[in-house]
């Protein structure tokens, strides 16, 4: 059956994106988590602009008003053995000078 695919990785069609929008997911952050756009193998390279434009159209707002969702590193998937081969980098940025925790022992 013919389909107009918005996100190839997660097989989300334009119609399904609109349906999720009408279901109450009115922001990219929510649409991303519930339709899966931008979270698949391409990490949004193939669908993030397209989805944001579609959301602007659905909401009737200027595309510049759609906030950009976080594009988290890395840019390409990296095998764990590749990453493990790196020399341990320091914490960088402001963290270099930030106070250190004396007790890391907390968690899920």
């Amino acid at each position: 059956m013919s389909k107009r695919i918005l996100c190839r990785c997660e097989d989300v069609t334009i119609e399904e994106f609109g349906k999720a929008y009408r279901d109450g997911f009115a922001e990219m952050e929510a649409l991303k988590r519930f339709t899966g756009v931008g979270t698949g193998f391409c990490q949004g390279k193939g669908c993030l602009c397209e989805s944001a434009l579609e959301l602007a159209r659905l909401r009737g707002i200027d595309p510049s008003q759609v906030p950009l969702t976080n594009i988290r590193p890395p840019i390409e998937p990296l095998t764990f053995e590749e990453l493990a081969s790196l020399d341990l980098p320091p914490l960088v940025g402001e963290m270099e000078a930030a106070p250190r925790g004396d007790d890391p022992e907390v968690g899920p």
Binding site: L78, L83, A84, L91
Partner: peptide, 14 residues
């Protein structure tokens, strides 16, 4: 500061 750190990725991968 919730910016990602390469250090984490390396420690986790190891």
């Amino acid at each position: 500061d919730t910016r990602s750190q390469l250090r984490f990725a390396v420690r986790f991968a190891r």
